[in-house]
């Protein structure tokens, strides 16, 4: 059987809110390592990879590896029924076609359980090799979300350029153009407000803003976002999930033909 218990149930709620609009169905893999998921969006432009390590849970039991096919919109509906302070338990018995979500209020005076039917999902798993990136930008996640939102009111694509000057986000549309430059800034009181730019090579890539705005739905999970760029690779937008793992979004660039 498989069982996990997470006292900070709101974290699972936030994970679902971050991915449910990008991916329709996905296989969630449960192993001794943890609870993980990899899925592409329906147009195969973006990929999301989630890892919640077993050590991060208050209780984690996985007798044998299982893969649970889940419709994310339905899982999000169920997790919306959990209170923000609720303790969440997820449980699946071997050989059954459903998974149970149990929510306990912190004072134990309300206990709910929801059973979600599992699905057979024929999903393709992609191997993502470790890569050296030309530039890695760490910045406040809220700032990144704000930039993507602001630029999408002007254009559909964003050019992300990293130079010695900093990281520049540019767009153009029918009404005009926009450029936002963020410089490295480590002289802040709180580390979560820092912007750190590690550049090996200058890099400039173009991406669809629609996807960036979708990734930014993970903002409540982490105060910082890491954007890894290489001229011949998809961008990786990573939100670390405190003490537990990460949610990584991979997005293929747009190129001029």
């Amino acid at each position: 059987m498989f069982e996990l218990r997470l006292e900070q149930g709101s974290l699972l709620k936030k994970v679902m809110e971050a991915i449910k609009d990008l991916v329709n169905d996905a296989n969630f893999d449960c192993s001794a390592t943890g609870f993980s998921m990899q899925a592409m969006d329906s147009s195969h432009v973006a990929l999301v990879a989630l890892l919640l390590r077993s050590e991060g849970f208050e209780h984690y039991r996985c007798d044998r590896n299982i893969s649970m096919g889940i419709n994310l919109a339905n899982m999000a509906k169920i997790l919306k029924c959990a209170g923000n302070d609720d303790i969440v338990t997820v449980k699946a018995d071997d050989g059954t076609d459903s998974v149970t979500f149990m929510f306990e209020s912190p004072t134990q005076d309300k206990i709910s359980d929801f059973e979600l039917k599992l699905m057979d999902i024929d999903s393709e798993h992609l191997g993502i090799p470790e890569a050296e990136y030309d530039a890695i930008v760490r910045m406040p996640s809220a700032e990144f979300a704000r930039i993507c939102k602001d630029l999408s009111s002007i254009g559909d694509t964003v050019v992300i350029s990293v130079t010695k000057e900093g990281v520049k986000f540019s767009t153009r549309g029918d009404i005009g153009t926009a450029n936002i430059v963020c410089r490295q800034n480590t002289s802040v009181d709180k580390p979560e407000e820092a912007t750190i730019i590690e550049m090996k090579e200058m890099v400039s890539l173009t991406f669809a803003l629609r996807y960036m705005n979708s990734f930014a739905k993970a903002t409540p999970l982490a105060s910082q976002v890491t954007i890894s760029l290489s001229s011949d690779l998809p961008v990786v937008v990573e939100y670390k999930i405190a003490e537990m793992g990460y949610i990584r979004f991979y997005l293929a660039p747009k190129i001029e033909e």
Binding site: S43, H44, V45, L126, I128, P129, L251, K254, I255, E256
Partner: peptide, 14 residues
């Protein structure tokens, strides 16, 4: 004209 690449052009099935 800009063309959207697919993620599958970069990563292989495992």
């Amino acid at each position: 004209r800009s063309v959207q690449l697919s993620i599958k052009e970069f990563y292989r099935s495992s």
